[in-house]
Write a protein that binds this DNA or RNA. Sequence first.
DNA 1: AGGAAAAGTTGCGCGACACGCAAACTCCTG
DNA 2: CAGGAGTTTGCGTGTCGCGCAACTTTTCCT
Lengths: 211, 211
Amino acid sequence: MAADPSGLRARKKEQTRIALSWATIRLAVERGLANVRVEDIAAEVGVSPRTFNNYFASKGEAIADRELQRFRQFAAALRERPADEPLWPAITAAVLDRYALTGETDGGSVEEVDETARRRWVEGVRLMIAEPAVQRDLAAAYAAAEEQLAVAVAARTGTDVDRDMFPRLVAGAVGVALGTARQQWMRDQSVPIADLIVDALAQVAGGLPTP
Amino acid sequence: MAADPSGLRARKKEQTRIALSWATIRLAVERGLANVRVEDIAAEVGVSPRTFNNYFASKGEAIADRELQRFRQFAAALRERPADEPLWPAITAAVLDRYALTGETDGGSVEEVDETARRRWVEGVRLMIAEPAVQRDLAAAYAAAEEQLAVAVAARTGTDVDRDMFPRLVAGAVGVALGTARQQWMRDQSVPIADLIVDALAQVAGGLPTP
DNA sequence: AGGAAAAGTTGCGCGACACGCAAACTCCTG
DNA sequence: CAGGAGTTTGCGTGTCGCGCAACTTTTCCT
């Protein structure tokens, strides 16, 4: 479904999925989620309102989808790391590879935007994230993604997803680390997010020692 | 709001809140969430449908509320642990105190229920939890509760919730541990949940070493 | 104690949403 | 190029979520 380049068809589908997701985010950031109707999003993408619900069950889900995809890509990246690499270095590398370096900040073109616009955007995102509905779906998306990550971890460590808590604990811990890093970054963008991620992962991997 | 025995009023309020929550859970477990309307829940508790939404914004939120309260109680318990106790032992003790020992299994009376009924209940819960809507609100509830826990951890370790990632990482890790333990227990009830919790917390506190 | 104020509940109503269903349309396969 | 699987779309419907404005109950102040 996600990485399925089978037909030209699936590509188109994935394209509208992404378009819908971005449109939702953009509008929500600009006007606030409450002032965005499904109708608007559909119009923005040039598709029927009914179709929106074919892809997403709610606006929140559409918003969370980008984050979900990133997390999934990262899980996939982990799977393709050399098998003999120790777990935590592999995770860190995979995260930095697929998660932090993508320079996607906006709906399409990246480029340099003037500073005030960037601030406005970040603030908008902060407000959007604060929205209860978004929190819900975002959290759920993380949970779903962690499932996949847990499988990857299990494969790598020779543990069993159904019997051992280990893979799920690792997946969950990674999710927490990434989420916390993101949160921290939104609060203060003076430190690069990659550094925060590395730091958070290190703390988790180190057993959260009291500083 | 939660632990506010100020007036006789708040008590009553908390009572209906709990009643609504349990009623929602019970009905959802029995018939499946989709077959429970707000109207039914309200009727069960003897209150107006409109009132349900005064307490909860959705059925999912009502369901998640019990778990949220437990988590909050646990955060409170942590706050009252001796300040010189090391972090992780304090957390473990607080969890076992407030989280695992409450013998609440059903809407009210505990007692011994016959085995098949218990299994039916657990299975019902499993299905309920699997419901996307419930997953959403449950995850959100955890996130909210972790916020409080983070504050407690910060106070105990002399860190700052706004500047250090540490307290949030710890809170998140604890949440993951509890969630994973609960999940594991639902899959196989042969191991007491308290043991699973202790195990999960120990793994997290130990830096998730590959077994 | 008594009455005003604060807090909670209820009924009404509306805008929006989630989703089933079936028809129209599009792309793939042989 | 024709059959069929996969998608989009319009329509209809059952619920929601919540604002608003009475109405009732508790609390507080003098």
